[in-house]
Each structure stands twice: as structure tokens, then as C-alpha cells.
């Protein structure tokens, strides 16, 4: 079971307190009607699904209830960092053995 650091509680808590919420930094368009069918399809369904570093959303659902973002390695499952929902994607230099 992973330990996850909630950036709002500033505490490390077991995975069972959290819920996964999909890829991060996919903002809902301000006016979806301006998107054509393909653009809207991409917004709805197309995700990066990387092997390695993944920016994703979690919710401290059985804690403070806040949604936050995380950078996690999908190969090792390990969290690199977590950060508040409003913050930009942190720049992370990947180590050599991480693709």
C-alpha cells in the first residue's frame, strides 16, 4: 500500500484514504461549444497514458476532501511529488533508468 502525501493536510497517509481521479492538467474548455467534434472527443477520451512519469489527480476523499495533483512513475508506482490543484505542472528531471 502506497503512502501518499496530501499537500493540503501536509501529511503522509495510506492509500486507502485517497481516490484516484484521472490525468491532471486537462482543463475543461471555457466554452465547449467552440470545440469541433474531434477536439471534444480528444478532450473527453484521449489521455497520455505514459510509461513513466505521469501527472495525475487524486482526492483525499477520506481526509480533507481536497483534490490535488501528483507526479507518479507508472513503472514503479512511486510518487515523485504531490502539489495543490491550482499549481502548474512541476518540472521533473527523470533519472536515467526511467524511460
Amino acid at each position: 500500500m502506497l503512502l501518499i502525501h496530501c499537500p493540503y493536510c501536509n501529511a503522509e497517509r495510506p492509500e486507502v484514504e485517497f481516490a484516484y481521479a484521472g490525468e491532471a492538467h486537462i482543463a475543461r474548455p471555457t466554452d465547449p461549444s467552440q470545440l469541433d467534434d474531434d477536439q471534444w472527443r480528444d478532450h473527453l477520451y484521449i489521455r497520455s497514458n505514459p510509461r513513466g512519469l505521469h501527472y495525475e489527480r487524486w482526492r483525499h476523499i477520506h481526509g480533507c476532501g481536497r483534490f490535488f495533483n501528483a507526479a507518479r512513475d507508472t513503472l514503479s508506482d512511486k510518487f515523485v511529488t504531490t502539489y495543490k490543484a491550482s499549481l502548474p505542472r512541476p518540472q521533473i528531471v527523470q533519472s536515467e533508468d526511467t524511460p
Partner: peptide, 13 residues
């Protein structure tokens, strides 16, 4: 409630 919180916290804070 989770869905509402999601929109409220992350799309329309």
C-alpha cells in the same frame, strides 16, 4: 457529491 466537488474545486474554484 464527489463529482460536484471535483468541478467545484478544480474547474470553478
Amino acid at each position: 457529491l464527489n463529482m460536484m466537488e471535483d468541478y467545484l474545486q478544480t474547474e470553478w474554484p
